[in-house]
Amino acid sequence: MKRINKFKMEFDAISQNESFARGVVGAFLARLNPSIDEINDVKTAVSEAVTNAIVHGYEGRENGIITLSVLIDGMLATITIEDKGEGIPDIEKAKEPFYTTKPEEERSGMGFTVMESFMDSVEVRSGKKGTVVILKKELGKCFHMRRLSL
């Protein structure tokens, strides 16, 4: 199998597309034969980042575009979620557990905490022209550990 494989797509920043986005990523990574837990970890993190782009980046405006790309290099998956929305004024603050700018909408403020817990690394770049979230995870770890222990 080719070592490097990638895709890139754009979709409307509307809430119906949250399940589509995480489903596409899950399907693309399935060929690496990851564990169900690993796929669920990635899908959850993608869902958090896409939801942030829709709710915070575009503030619910339905004319926004989200760019999603996935790069597989060996067993390392790099997922990039990009919006051209408002940007995050204070990234460190946004990453704090339970911090939300929208408590009145019953937001938990746990999005980045979940991303950081479910992925190996989370990188956020944000400015007035939008936000880029880069999620990385090495897949197949459980499999390798099992093989080594045999």
Binding site: N40, E105, E106, S108, M110, V114
Partner: peptide, 13 residues
């Protein structure tokens, strides 16, 4: 079969 942190906000509400 799937929930993200949105669910936490719904439950706390």
């Amino acid at each position: 079969f799937f929930m993200d942190s949105t669910g936490v906000g719904v439950l706390i509400g």
